Simulated assay, not measured.
Amino acid sequence: MDRHHILELYHWTSGTCFRHPAKGEVPTAHVKTIRPAAGGIQDIRACTDCVVGMEAHRQAAAEGAGLPYRPGAGAGE
């Protein structure tokens, strides 16, 4: 699956990428919600480059485990 099709699987809004906060506000997708030990909840957002990179890692892990790869699976979990 190419970059464009992968990115279409996510909902994009302006935000700060968890890996690239210095970029400031860029299009980001919600990729995870965490619950820090200090309390509350924190939404984790990623930019387009990070989402594509994460999907590449997910695909490699699925293939290595002999499992089917479903792009976008768990997007915004």
Rank of each mutant, 00 (worst) to 15 (best):
M1D: 12
M1L: 12
M1A: 15
M1E: 13
D2E: 15
D2V: 10
D2H: 11
D2L: 09
H4I: 06
H5E: 15
H5S: 14
I6K: 00
I6D: 01
I6Q: 02
I6M: 03
L7P: 00
E8A: 14
Y10A: 12
Y10H: 07
Y10P: 02
Y10E: 11
Y10L: 09
W12Q: 08
W12K: 04
T13F: 04
T16F: 07
T16S: 07
T16A: 06
C17R: 00
C17Q: 00
C17H: 02
F18S: 06
R19W: 09
R19Q: 13
H20R: 10
H20S: 13
H20Q: 11
H20N: 14
H20P: 10
P21I: 11
P21H: 13
A22W: 03
A22R: 05
K23R: 11
K23I: 03
K23V: 03
G24R: 08
G24W: 12
E25V: 12
E25Y: 05
V26N: 02
V26M: 06
P27F: 02
P27G: 07
T28L: 06
T28D: 06
T28C: 15
A29N: 01
H30E: 04
H30C: 01
V31A: 00
K32W: 07
K32H: 13
K32C: 08
K32N: 13
T33Q: 08
T33H: 05
I34D: 11
R35F: 02
P36K: 01
P36L: 07
A37S: 05
A38I: 13
A38E: 15
A38K: 14
A38T: 15
G39S: 12
G39D: 11
G39I: 09
G39K: 09
G40A: 10
G40D: 10
I41Q: 15
I41F: 07
I41W: 10
Q42A: 09
Q42L: 12
D43Q: 11
R45A: 02
A46R: 06
C47Y: 06
T48H: 14
T48V: 04
D49T: 14
C50I: 09
C50D: 15
C50E: 12
C50T: 15
V51M: 06
V51T: 02
V52N: 01
V52I: 14
V52H: 02
V52G: 03
V52Y: 04
G53V: 06
M54A: 13
M54V: 13
E55L: 05
A56W: 07
H57Q: 14
R58D: 09
Q59T: 05
A60W: 10
A60P: 04
A60G: 05
A62D: 04
A62H: 02
A62V: 05
G64N: 09
G64C: 05
G64D: 09
A65G: 11
A65M: 10
G66A: 05
G66E: 11
G66Q: 07
P68L: 11
Y69Q: 00
R70N: 05
R70T: 15
R70L: 14
P71D: 02
P71I: 03
P71F: 01
P71K: 01
P71E: 02
G72Y: 03
G72M: 04
A73G: 08
A73N: 12
G74R: 06
G76I: 00
